[in-house]
Amino acid sequence: MSQVSRLSDLYGREGLSPGHSACRGCGATVAVRQILLAAEPPFIVVTPTGCLEVISSQFPYTSWRVPWVHVAFENAAAVASGIEAALRALERKGLGRRHKVIVIAGDGGTFDIGFQALSGAFERGHDLLYICYDNEAYMNTGIQRSAATPLGSATTTTPAGKREQKKDIVSILVGHGSPYVATSSPHLWKDLTNKVRKAQSIEGPTFLHVVAPCPRGWYFEPQLTIKMAKLAVETRIFPIYEVENGKYRINYMINRPRPVEEYLKLQSRFAYLLRPENAHLLERFKQWVEDRWNYLQKMAAVTSS
């Protein structure tokens, strides 16, 4: 595995062609481009139904320059299991060769409807890399809540703001015994591309949780996509860390976090959360941020020894 240290290490390896139909400033697409620039051949990409699939694969066109398959919304991990195992058998029989299978799935296809297939694939220990681009709602169907939608965020099915906080998907996958689970953000391109390579090089089911700001569904100006990812990280709302064989490591230390309001106030989806009468909800949100950061620090300290 070679380390990515300069952008010129990535240039020329484009896996996604332009001309796709993602909204202007789509953060998911920035993340996917970086993932494909980093991935080491040979690999096959599986994408469930969702924005990424729809913006990239309208017959007779495709934006994918790498082998790619979409089957349904809730089964990307199962499809990936099938590809991975089949190629293992075919290689043994001299009828094919193994590829690394990389799933790139939305939060709905990961946290919600695809969760059973994901859990099954991780429990069975398939050799695959599952990457969730998290835009924190069902964007493709018009911004409905998912288990990844944060507390207080308005979606078309939570018009007055969601009452529940995000599911901690990383801990759940750590609980599956995955050898490598990490978070990343496209604004930290070096972190993301190196994590893709690292996760790819580890045998077994590995997972990356990548924040993917969505100007359309979060209601912010499209030029702010990268800023938004950066703010998510620097407010400690989206900490950057990895869990390797149970050992926690915070990869991007935020010693002086920026106030969460800086992030929230740029996105109209949080307008309700910021109203004075909802101060208690905002308090809950802040507490959640603080608790998770403390938890990560504690886990990093406990597991490093």
Binding site: S17, G19, H20, S56, S57, P60, Y61, T62, V66
Partner: peptide, 14 residues
Amino acid sequence: PVVFEVGNTAERSV
């Protein structure tokens, strides 16, 4: 439902 001309959205102008 397969497209063999990979990356052909590049033919489209946006």
